[in-house]
Amino acid sequence: MKRSHLLREIVEILALALLIFLVVRLVVQSYHVDGDSMSPSLQSNQNVLVNKMAYLFRGPERGDVIVFHYPKEPNVDYIKRIIGVPGDTIRIDSEHVWVNDVQLNEPYIKEAINPYAKSWKVPADNYFVLGDNRPVSKDSRYWDFVPKEYIVGKAVLVYWPTDQWKFIDTYSNTFAPITTKQ
């Protein structure tokens, strides 16, 4: 009698552990930063926690740092900052970025440099993303937009290495003056 009771408890504990594991995997994901395209905000070899449910009830916003499937190679994931949302007009010159004719003051970038002057109109259900380390980042300047369905989630927390633990800043004040043109 005691043996069957113990076996039942072990099965219940294992089932509960599996359920908790599956729920956590549906809600959050770990992402390993590989490269310097998001420096100084994120460093190579940091691990970040990605909220996969962040956009369940609202869309991605300017300033959000997202993990997404690279549009040219969907089995590869990238991490970048959203600069433009659907309906926005993005314009760049060699040093500056404008969103809907508002020049961004970007405290998060390592160096203000762009390879050329160009403008884009962000289509519906797409996002314009840039890395914070512009000289080395391959981003929307080179391959245009990230479709909404390619977004894995919002990066919210650096958790490894533990001495670099921090919440990821979206710099909402930088993007506050921008009004959406739809």
Rank of each mutant, 00 (worst) to 15 (best):
I13S: 10
S39G: 05
M38C: 02
V24R: 11
S39A: 05
V11S: 07
V11Y: 09
F21G: 01
D34Q: 11
Q29E: 14
Y31A: 14
L14T: 14
A17N: 07
L22K: 12
K2A: 13
L14R: 09
R8T: 15
M38H: 00
I20V: 14
S39Q: 01
V11G: 05
L22C: 07
H5W: 10
L7E: 09
K2C: 10
I20N: 06
L7M: 04
I20M: 07
R8P: 14
I20K: 07
D36K: 06
A15L: 13
I13N: 10
S37W: 00
L26Y: 13
L14P: 08
Q43M: 01
Y31C: 04
S41C: 07
L19G: 01
S41M: 06
R3F: 11
V23P: 11
L18I: 06
S39E: 01
L22A: 07
L14D: 01
R25C: 03
A17P: 02
S30A: 10
R25G: 04
L26C: 07
V33L: 01
V24G: 12
V33C: 07
G35S: 03
V27I: 14
Q29K: 12
L42Y: 02
L6A: 13
L42P: 04
V23Y: 03
V33T: 04
R25A: 09
A17Y: 09
L19S: 06
K2R: 10
A15E: 04
V23C: 05
A17S: 13
D34N: 09
V24D: 05
V27G: 12
G35N: 07
L26R: 08
D36Q: 09
Q43E: 01
S30K: 05
L14A: 10
L19V: 02
R8M: 07
L7Y: 08
A17C: 08
R8I: 15
V11H: 10
R25D: 06
Q43T: 02
K2W: 11
D36A: 08
L6R: 05
F21D: 08
V27D: 10
S41P: 00
M38E: 00
K2T: 13
P40C: 00
E12S: 06
L7G: 14
H5R: 14
D36E: 11
V27N: 09
S37N: 02
R25L: 08
L26N: 06
E12V: 15
I10Q: 05
S37P: 00
G35C: 04
L42G: 11
H5D: 12
A17V: 15
L18Y: 06
L19A: 11
I20C: 08
L14H: 06
L22N: 03
L6D: 11
L6H: 14
Y31E: 04
L18E: 01
S37G: 03
L7S: 09
D36L: 02
P40W: 00
V23I: 13
I10R: 03
V27A: 13
V27T: 09
S4D: 14
S37K: 03
G35P: 02
M38P: 01
D36I: 02
F21S: 14
V24S: 14
L22D: 00
H32V: 14
R25Y: 06
S39D: 00
Y31G: 13
Q43K: 10
L7R: 09
L6N: 13
R8F: 15
V33M: 03
D34F: 02
